[in-house]
């Protein structure tokens, strides 16, 4: 009650505090940070309390790695490294790609169809914060996936225990989550809430295969070897393979440039799709 009276007595002061008078940017920055932390916490709690959605994203790459990398690949070589080391890089990339496309892309698409998103859109929630929180979740999932695969490879495969190399690989795999979060963002905004999971699978699985994430690219038919440079996932897995000295001979800069162009295209597409989406209410 007394607060209300204070507002009554000094409407101008109220207005300036609303807009943020002194140290406005500072306060705004702190507010955004707090908002981002809470939004990320909410995302995290949703996943932890209802893990059914997240578990396949984590177990899928692990299962593939066990089958192809550790069982069939046991004792084999892929170029200069052991098959289990080579496939650690590519299945790691496969897992991170999945976390970005499903955790981020499908997550956003499904939420767009729910009344919850409509309510959020009516609120002053900073949209960037919402996406940044989704990205935190995709990164956390990626960390779990990369750690799990590395552990499996060390314990059951011929992955040499070289901390510096493994750290470099893990770092590259996690950085690679960023361009695919941009792709996830585009798909999340562009696709319909109901069709998103199916469409994302149709992009994810063939692209991963054709980029040499399941079976080393040199072992694939020539058609795929010629197609691969047009796929962003190829450039990503090559960068990951580069950290263990198992990439093909193209320069790393080319891969980085290709991924940068890809990110820009995704963000432009996402901005366009976001505007288009404004007038559609699914909720």
């Amino acid at each position: 009650m007394s607060r209300q009276e204070a507002v009554l007595a000094t409407p101008e002061i109220d207005e300036t505090t609303r807009r943020g008078g002194d140290g406005a940017t500072d306060r705004r920055g702190r507010r955004l940070l707090r908002c981002w932390l809470l939004e990320s916490r909410a995302e995290f709690l949703k996943v932890v309390r209802m893990p059914a959605y997240a578990i396949p994203t984590i177990l899928f790459p692990a299962m593939f790695y066990i089958l192809f990398g550790l069982s069939f690949g046991a004792g084999q070589q892929a170029g200069s490294v052991s098959m289990s080391t080579y496939l650690l890089a590519t299945y790691g990339a496969f897992g991170v790609l999945g976390a970005a496309l499903f955790g981020f892309g499908v997550g956003v698409a499904i939420e767009r169809g729910q009344g919850w998103m409509l309510l959020k859109r009516a609120s002053p929630m900073p949209v960037g914060v919402y996406f940044a929180a989704k990205m935190v979740m995709a990164l956390l999932m990626s960390i779990v996936i990369v750690a799990l695969l590395t552990g499996l490879g060390l314990a059951f495969g011929d992955v040499p225990f070289e901390p510096a190399t493994l750290a470099g690989l893990a770092g590259m795999l996690l950085i690679g989550a960023l361009p695919f979060c941009a792709f996830g963002l585009l798909l999340g905004i562009f696709l319909g809430p109901n069709s998103a999971p199916a469409v994302v699978n149709l992009i994810y699985l063939p692209m991963a295969f054709a980029s040499g994430m399941w079976i080393p690219l040199p072992a694939l038919p020539e058609f795929f070897q010629r197609l691969a440079p047009y796929l962003p996932a190829y450039h990503y897995s090559q960068l990951a393979l580069g950290t263990i000295g198992a990439d093909d001979s193209r320069p790393a800069l080319l891969h980085v440039a290709a991924l940068c162009v890809f990110v820009v295209l995704c963000l432009l597409g996402a901005a366009w799709a976001w505007r288009r989406d404004e007038d559609r209410t699914y909720g």
């Binding site: 943020g20 507010r31 909410a42 949703k46 309390r49 009344g115 919850w116 409509l118 609120s123």
Partner: peptide, 27 residues
């Protein structure tokens, strides 16, 4: 606002939802 149809996330607690929403506003 309060919308006619708004399914909030079932796995968040009441205070978590309220705190999240409060963080969207300046005051």
């Amino acid at each position: 606002s309060m919308m006619q149809i708004s399914s909030l996330p079932a796995t968040l607690r009441v205070v978590e939802l309220i705190d999240l929403w409060r963080s969207y506003y300046p005051a």
